[in-house]
C-alpha cells in the first residue's frame, strides 16, 4: 500500500517535471524560463524528500537544503541580470 503511494507520488512529480521542462524550453522570454527553473528546483527538492522517505536515509535532506539555497541565489542572480541587461531577443 505505502509503496504504491510512493510510486504514484514519483509519477506525478515526474510528470510535473516534464511539464515544467516544456515551459523551460518554450518560454518566450528569459523571466519565464527563470520561473520554470525555480519550479523545477522546488520539484527536485520535493523528490529528494520523497526519496529520503523511500530509502529511509535521512542524509538526503541535506541535498534539499543546498538545493533550496542555490535555487534562491540563482533566481536573485537572474533577476539582477535581467534588470541590467534589459529586453533583447532570447
Amino acid at each position: 500500500m505505502f509503496e504504491w503511494v510512493i510510486e504514484i507520488v514519483y509519477l506525478l512529480l515526474s510528470v510535473s517535471l516534464l511539464l515544467a521542462f516544456v515551459r523551460l524550453a518554450k518560454g518566450p522570454s528569459l523571466p519565464d524560463r527563470v520561473v520554470a527553473l525555480e519550479l523545477i528546483a522546488s520539484i527536485v527538492a520535493g523528490m529528494v524528500g520523497v526519496h529520503a522517505i523511500d530509502t529511509g536515509i535521512s542524509a538526503y535532506l541535506d541535498i534539499a537544503i543546498v538545493l533550496a539555497i542555490t535555487a534562491f541565489l540563482a533566481a536573485i542572480g537572474f533577476a539582477r541580470f535581467i534588470q541590467v541587461r534589459g529586453m533583447h531577443d532570447d
Binding site: V5, V9, L12, L19, A20, R23, A36, I43, G46
Partner: peptide, 27 residues
C-alpha cells in the same frame, strides 16, 4: 500518504498552470 499525494497534486496543478497561463505574473 495523504500529505505526499496532496503535495504532488499541488505540484502537478502548478506545472499545468505554468504551461497554460498566458503571461509572466500569472505564471
Amino acid at each position: 500518504s495523504v500529505l505526499l499525494l496532496t503535495a504532488s497534486i499541488v505540484v502537478l496543478l502548478a506545472s499545468i498552470g505554468l504551461l497554460r497561463l498566458p503571461d509572466l505574473p500569472t505564471r
